[in-house]
């Protein structure tokens, strides 16, 4: 079951790479959030305490529903439905993603995490998520795609934390989730202002700004 959830997370990452529509990027980062929340609850089921349960539940709701709910109106307001002219298109991204998958799995066999009774797919999946997030950030131009890329990267870090540790201090985990929440909140405001000031949200145009 754990393996299945991790594989689904990997597949959702591939789906993120293979789309250029903002709407479906937001939907799929939400699906990934739900999967990660389920994984957080399921992976620690045996050692479940109240605070672990709360962290898992907060992660599920926040990553799965709140982030998409915050981002979707922004996409509507700024009238951006599609990544028109990315540096690397969806096809190229997917192919790069497949190469990254091979590299991640190879690196996963080299990198041993102490503890070791968790699924051996955790490390490769983490590396793959981080790579996918980075690729989204550097290859797409719209600010919204880059936010989704950042969320995918963070999801990778979350996967590693949940997948290898049965318990982390409550304050640390909930603090990270709250940080993410505030970050997304700030981005939504920032993107709205970006659109209001320049009538687009292409981050590559920002280099023309002069002080």
């Amino acid at each position: 079951m754990n393996d299945l959830l991790i594989i689904l997370v990997v597949l959702s990452n591939i789906r993120l790479l293979s789309t250029s529509r903002i709407e479906s990027l937001i939907t799929w980062i939400g699906v990934q959030g739900v999967l990660l929340g389920l994984f957080a609850l399921h992976a620690r089921w045996v050692h479940l305490t109240a605070d672990v349960f709360v962290v898992g539940l907060v992660a599920l709701v926040l990553k799965g529903f709140v982030f998409p709910w915050l981002l979707r109106p922004v996409a509507n307001v700024v009238h951006v439905s599609q990544e028109v002219d990315p540096y690397v298109g969806p096809m190229g991204s997917t192919l790069l993603g497949m190469v990254a998958l091979v590299v991640s799995l190879w690196l996963g066999t080299r990198l041993h995490i102490p503890g070791g009774d968790m699924s051996r797919l955790v490390v490769p999946a983490t590396l793959f998520s981080v790579f996918c997030g980075q690729l989204l950030i550097v290859s797409r131009k719209k600010a919204l795609s880059q936010v989704v890329g950042f969320l995918a990267m963070e999801n990778g870090a979350f996967l590693l934390g949940v997948g290898t540790l049965y318990y982390a201090p409550f304050l640390v985990e909930i603090g990270v989730l709250l940080d993410m929440f505030v970050a997304v909140l700030i981005w939504t405001v920032l993107i709205r202002y970006l659109d209001r000031a320049f009538h687009h949200i292409d981050t590559d145009q920002l280099q023309h700004l002069k002080g």
């Binding site: 293979s18 969806p90 997917t94 993603g97």
Partner: peptide, 18 residues
Amino acid sequence: VPHLLIGACSLALLGFLI
């Protein structure tokens, strides 16, 4: 269509690798 087929490739490749 190529997107779909590349998706098929990634599914099969993932199945091969894990």
